[in-house]
């Protein structure tokens, strides 16, 4: 079964996402920040990365996705970006004028059915 890496500094979000994904039989690993996330990509070789945009620093997740895009060993791994920034002040910070290396968005709080269908699509 596919392995999924969750990068989020909120342990409860990691846990909730893990419960949903494990219920569908996926193998789940987590990382608490961008740096650990990039290490996890190398060490765990996940089939998919679920990435939070805002961690310790604003838009840290975006930085991780760009790092992955620039590395040929990582750029093939699909990224599902998780965000709670829609309709907040942060939305203004989000770069809209440049290409963002992500394959999809889901928003917080998670809707389990939606999350599973997005994951299944990206992995197929």
């Amino acid at each position: 079964m596919a392995k999924i890496l969750i990068v989020d500094d909120d342990p409860d979000f990691c846990e909730a996402t893990r419960v949903v994904l494990e219920s569908a039989g996926y193998q789940v690993v987590t990382a608490p920040d961008g740096e650990a996330g990039l290490r996890g990509v190398v060490d765990e070789k996940p089939d998919l990365v679920i990435l939070d945009i805002i961690m310790e620093t604003v838009l840290e997740g975006l930085h991780v996705s760009q790092e992955m895009a620039n590395d040929p060993n990582k750029s093939h791994i699909p990224i599902l970006m998780v965000t709670s920034i829609a309709n907040t002040d942060y939305a203004a910070l989000f770069p809209t004028d440049e290409y963002i290396h992500i394959n999809g968005f889901v928003s917080k709080p998670i809707s389990p059915a939606n999350l599973l269908s997005r994951v299944a699509t990206l992995l197929s």
């Binding site: 409860d12 979000f13 909730a16 917080k108």
Partner: peptide, 21 residues
């Protein structure tokens, strides 16, 4: 203010996620 907004939303989102599960 941005940080507070984020910090206030995050726990609610987490709780809501758990409840939904």
């Amino acid at each position: 203010m941005r940080l507070v907004t984020h910090e206030l939303r995050a726990p609610v989102a987490a709780i809501q996620s758990y409840l939904r599960l």
